[in-house]
């Protein structure tokens, strides 16, 4: 059982749809503890991703080709911190997915590479109220699902479940990285917008595999 280039394209389409659908929610979350531009920036970036996908004249050969296209588009259109963070996540994911199809272990490797990219770029660790708090448990849950013999759909669903739990875990945290860290204690009690958008993206990845 594998996922293929078609899955990667569908993931990008679904990611764009869910980010646009939750644009106002992300804006509101970011307004509470940041500079309020996360929803707008993400929507702009993924609308551009959608345009790139619609403009494809032939199907890319490898999953990594699609992820690299998403990466470079996000880097050049998102603006704010989310551009380089998600851009690097997709870029690193692309480097380990130079294949027409991915099995369960490959998907775990892809998610690990994305997490490493976010950590390298943002220099954040778990517990600092950032998107790392969603990515890290997503990787852990995906790896557990793959170890248990799960198929790609099960692995991606596990990643989405991990990301959702991780995002929820940011609510009581006090931010020590990013714009929200300027608020100190006042950042507690709010869902981190970057963790929430990570959850949205990984839920979209699982849905694309569940078709």
């Amino acid at each position: 059982m594998t996922v293929d280039v078609g899955w990667a394209i569908d993931w990008a389409r679904r990611a764009a749809a869910t980010v646009v659908e939750h644009r106002d929610e992300l804006i509101e979350l970011d307004r509470q503890i940041g500079d309020g531009d996360h929803g707008e920036n993400m929507a702009r970036g993924f609308v551009a991703v959608l345009a790139r996908i619609d403009a494809l004249t032939e199907r890319p050969a490898q999953v990594g080709d699609v992820l690299r296209m998403v990466a470079t588009t996000l880097m050049s259109t998102v603006g704010g911190a989310a551009g380089p963070l998600y851009g690097t996540a997709y870029l690193r994911a692309a480097t380990v997915t130079a294949a027409p199809t991915l099995g369960p272990v490959d998907i775990v490797a892809m998610l690990e590479a994305a997490l490493e990219g976010v950590v390298a770029r943002g220099r954040a660790r778990v517990g600092e109220k950032t998107m790392v708090d969603a990515w890290a448990p997503a990787v852990t849950e995906a790896a557990a699902a793959a170890d248990a013999g799960g198929d790609p759909t099960a692995v991606l669903r596990a990643a989405a479940v991990g990301a959702s739990a991780g995002a929820a875990s940011t609510v009581p945290l006090v931010a020590t990285k990013g714009r929200a860290s300027y608020l100190g204690e006042r950042s507690a009690g709010h869902l981190d917008p970057g963790a929430r958008s990570t959850e949205l993206l990984l839920v979209a990845a699982a849905e694309a595999a569940s078709r």
Binding site: T72, M75, G79, G80, A81, G83, P84, L85, G87, T88, L91, R121, G122, G178, R179
Partner: peptide, 14 residues
């Protein structure tokens, strides 16, 4: 501040 560093690092990576 902030994303100026990260965007520059991303450019260098690409």
């Amino acid at each position: 501040i902030g994303s100026a560093v990260m965007t520059t690092e991303s450019v260098l990576e690409v």
